[in-house]
Design a protein around this nucleic acid. Structure first.
Length: 219
DNA sequence: TTTCTGATCTTCT
DNA sequence: GAAGATCAGAAAC
């Protein structure tokens, strides 16, 4: 099967203009493409929406940081966290309602060498490949920060429209049977941890291990 | 295999 | 000033 058949046609804006907890499981098996790298999504989390979601960045209202989440659906929301990581979301719901789906993990199905090079960092830097343990294929995009690195997503991509012709699109891929979709509490969130808005493809090796929120100790 | 901890800085209170 | 939608490596088991 050729790559074209594998990733299918791009999804249109209507796909994203729904509640995030409806879009999230529907995104499993879809393919996020950025330039030469394509990732088949295997794990996602829904945030925000019309109701109150204390775990969402939009819970306390609009701010310069989360403005994209209140914008047009189908755009990319990239944020910086823990002082060193980027995470990527796809905006859902019509404009004015802060809602998005966090891309937590996936399988790299094209551009694996580019993704691996990004994960390893510069060849002559302190994290040179020779000084690092090898990265298994299943770990290339296993976890939200790793996925962002593999796809080359950084701050400048915040607000990118993924529903127009360009290097960044979400393709139909192959939807997953409802029976193969797992659901459970979201990873690493303190508030709203009981809401089962984390969705993954059952038995898929690229799904990241669940970690509950652990309050950090003061130094 | 599981648990713990340091790294690092933006955002919000 | 404190916490955070994390990760990698070390230590413990």
């Amino acid at each position: 099967m050729g790559e074209r058949e594998l990733i299918g046609p791009p999804l249109d804006r209507g796909f994203f203009g729904r509640p995030s907890d409806e879009v999230a499981p529907d995104l499993l098996g879809r393919v996020f493409v950025h330039g030469p790298v394509a990732v088949r999504l295997t794990e996602v989390e829904a945030y925000g929406g019309p109701g109150q979601d204390p775990a969402s960045h939009t819970y306390r209202g609009r701010s310069p940081r989360n403005a994209v989440m209140f914008g047009e659906p189908g755009h990319l929301y990239v944020y910086f966290t823990y002082g060193m990581h980027f995470c990527a979301n796809l905006v859902c719901m019509p404009e004015g309602i802060g809602s998005a789906v966090l891309l937590r993990a996936g399988e790299v199905i094209a551009g694996a060498e580019v993704a691996r090079a990004r994960r390893l960092g510069p060849a002559d830097g302190p994290s040179a490949p020779a000084a690092r343990r090898p990265i298994r294929d299943r770990d290339l995009a296993r976890g939200p920060a790793r996925l962002a690195v593999a796809l080359g997503l950084i701050r400048e991509h915040n607000g990118t429209d993924c529903c127009v012709p360009g290097p960044m699109r979400v393709h139909a891929g192959r939807p997953v049977d409802a029976g193969d979709v797992g659901a459970g509490p979201r990873t690493g969130v303190a508030a709203g941890a009981e809401t089962p808005w984390r969705f993954w493809i059952g038995e898929d090796p690229t799904v990241s291990p669940y970690r509950r929120h652990v309050p950090r100790r003061r130094g």
